[in-house]
């Protein structure tokens, strides 16, 4: 299980390895990733979709497509958008159980904690928690329908 999730994580680890731990290039790259993330439609930029515990504003939306959960997100800062875009790349379009059991080892492996600092690390943890909560909610919902 989770081979797809881990394949994407491994790809990300490889991409970041090219930056050779250079802090400035890494932040630059994350900002570029953020700028490439499709903006969230206005209707989803609601207070209900705001993640608590982030220094920047982050909106996260989750929808069910068949048995897959599709995430979309936005933020007022490019770095946060870049971070959430990585999470979306790894977790969006997966089944609820896959998301729930995912071990997101890529975050440590790319040295994210050291790069973004403790405040943003807490924000990242809050984003992951929120994604897993959505997965849990949809899992319960799907189980009810079955």
């Amino acid at each position: 299980m989770n081979t797809e999730i881990n394949q994407v994580q491994d790809q990300i680890i490889e991409e970041f390895a090219l930056l050779a731990g250079d802090r400035e290039s890494t932040i630059f790259y994350i900002m570029e990733l953020g700028q490439q993330l499709a903006p969230l439609a206005d209707e989803f930029m609601t207070d209900a979709n705001l993640i608590k515990g982030c220094q920047s504003k982050v909106w996260l939306n989750a929808e069910l497509e068949g048995d897959r959960i599709v995430f979309s997100a936005d933020s007022n800062t490019d770095i946060t958008k870049g971070l959430v875009s990585l999470l979306i790349r790894v977790l969006s379009g997966r089944k609820a159980e896959e998301i729930l059991s995912a071990d997101l080892y890529f975050i440590d492996r790319i040295g994210m904690g050291g790069i973004i600092g403790s405040q943003r690390s807490n924000g990242l943890t809050a984003m992951i928690k929120q994604m897993k909560l959505y997965a849990l909610a949809y899992k319960t919902k799907l189980a009810g329908q079955a």
Partner: peptide, 14 residues
């Protein structure tokens, strides 16, 4: 077109 937090992070990296 840039958020002040992002600018601060970039400068900190330097």
């Amino acid at each position: 077109g840039l958020h002040h937090f992002d600018i601060g992070m970039m400068l900190d990296a330097r």
